[in-house]
């Protein structure tokens, strides 16, 4: 009984330890007021108001006729992304922007694995639930300015990874060979038993 109680106490202690372990929250502050997070938290307060929003253009511009969709991220990675060595500071965050296609074409570089996208500033009306776009939360922009041009990002292979890959390849080939030989021995053994 005492042993059981001791085990229970140890489990409770370990669990309490786990409870207080949390990863740090993001320290990054968006250049926007309201930020994308602020718009999502208080959509009614900003609905229909003209706002200025700055963020990294990510992915692509999806041109649809005379207009286009841009996605601007105002998160911790808008100036430098993880592939360039930026610290981890939470999820991406941003806002979709609907604007004239000719303005969208000013964006040259879009953020992805190999690029840090152009940081652009748009001015437009925020919609908590846009009637034109099936209730989406978006910004209809009239102006766009490129604040910081994007760039290509290199992600070179880290040397220790190559060393590890080599060691594991040798390990894997040895395991395959070991498995083959064990199978062969088993087959021979089975054949002898049958005889």
């Amino acid at each position: 009984m005492t042993r059981r109680l001791r085990h229970l106490a140890a489990a409770a202690f370990a669990l309490t330890g786990l409870l207080i372990v949390t990863s740090p929250a993001s320290a990054f502050e968006s250049p926007n007021n309201p930020s994308s997070g602020g718009l999502v938290e208080e959509p009614k307060s900003w609905d229909g108001k003209t706002i200025r929003f700055e963020g990294e253009a990510v992915g692509e511009a999806m041109v649809r006729g005379e207009s286009a969709w841009l996605h601007l991220n105002d998160d911790a990675y808008m100036y430098k992304n993880v592939e360039e060595g930026a610290p981890l500071e939470g999820y991406n965050a941003g806002m979709p922007v609907w604007l004239p296609a000719k303005l969208a074409r000013r964006v040259r570089v879009f953020g992805d694995y190999k690029h840090e996208g152009d940081v652009v500033r748009v001015t437009g009306i925020f919609h908590a639930a846009c009637g034109e776009h099936g209730g989406d939360m978006d910004i209809h922009a009239r102006e766009l300015e490129v604040v910081l041009p994007g760039r290509a990002v290199a992600d070179p292979v880290v040397p220790w990874k190559l060393d590890l890959a080599l060691v594991l390849t040798v390990g894997a080939v040895s395991a395959i060979a070991f498995d083959r030989s064990a199978r062969r021995r088993e087959r021979v053994g089975n054949a002898r038993t049958r005889r």
């Binding site: 992600d155 070179p156 292979v157 390849t169 395991a175 498995d179 064990a182």
Partner: peptide
């Protein structure tokens, strides 16, 4: 041409094969 990612997958694949084939070799039974 995502070389760093390719090496990550090479490491992971080899780890899977090493443990997978290793387990099969060590656990021979009829």
């Amino acid at each position: 041409a995502e070389w760093d990612t390719a090496v990550d997958f090479l490491i992971s694949m080899m780890a899977c094969f090493m443990f997978g084939f290793g387990a099969q070799a060590m656990c021979r039974t009829t």
